[in-house]
Design a protein around this nucleic acid. Structure first.
Lengths: 108, 108
DNA sequence: CTTGATAAGTAGAATGGCTACATGTTGCCT
DNA sequence: AGGCAACATGTAGCCATTCTACTTATCAAG
């Protein structure tokens, strides 16, 4: 998959994986990897800054904990984040329709 | 639709509209607008540089003509462009599967 | 004779995902 | 005991591409 085809689509994806349970950064990476069937192997230099950005923007809230000597920062959706996720899903559907309207991907 | 969610997806879309008939820049803009149901209104500052980039990369070839006092540069797919378009369509399907695997967009 | 559509372009800003680097722990393998 | 893989978090700076804003020019309609 092309490098930064993700542009603009990553945020809702991150929000989606913490929708039903709060997760820490590393676990978010693993969840993305798993849900994408191994395709989405985010570098830490992408994920961690993105999480901070989303927190700054008010879509995520975080708290520190220490588990077995390891520090974890666990993120959960805020109510603004929930709304953002919903509208992100909607925007995805629009985007998909636009691309497929132009691309007509059935025709190889 | 978010501004540059297009990132990395625009190139195959441009190639797609000239797949069956050569078009000049302005006509490409109109074709994108029409095929996207009015959603994709590219600024000229996006399209023209993109066309030049695709030509430099060998995916498009262009020639000048003058129609009614207006200069047109008409673009058509090269054979490399045809291949690139095919692989772009394939990549789109992968990308879509990745996003939807993570997003599960059915659930509002 | 001005406005809107047609037509092509450039310069420079901004975005955000990437590479590469930095730091430290735990647990398994030899 | 030593080393490496997995766990865990983070920063600095690069880079590609899309965007805004601008320029130039013709033609048709009003």
């Amino acid at each position: 998959m092309k490098a930064d085809a993700l542009r603009g689509h990553l945020d809702p994806m991150i929000l989606a994986v913490v929708e039903h349970e709060p997760l820490h950064g590393y676990a978010i990476m693993e969840a993305l990897l798993e849900r994408s069937g191994g395709e989405l192997d985010l570098p830490t230099g992408t994920l961690y800054p993105a999480l901070r950005r989303l927190e700054r923007a008010g879509y995520l809230a975080s708290e520190w904990s220490t588990v077995g000597g390891r520090k974890r920062r666990t993120y959960q959706l805020t109510s603004a984040g929930t709304k953002m996720l919903a509208s992100g899903k909607q925007e995805w559907l629009t985007f998909r329709a636009v691309v497929e309207g132009v691309l007509r991907p059935g025709q190889a």
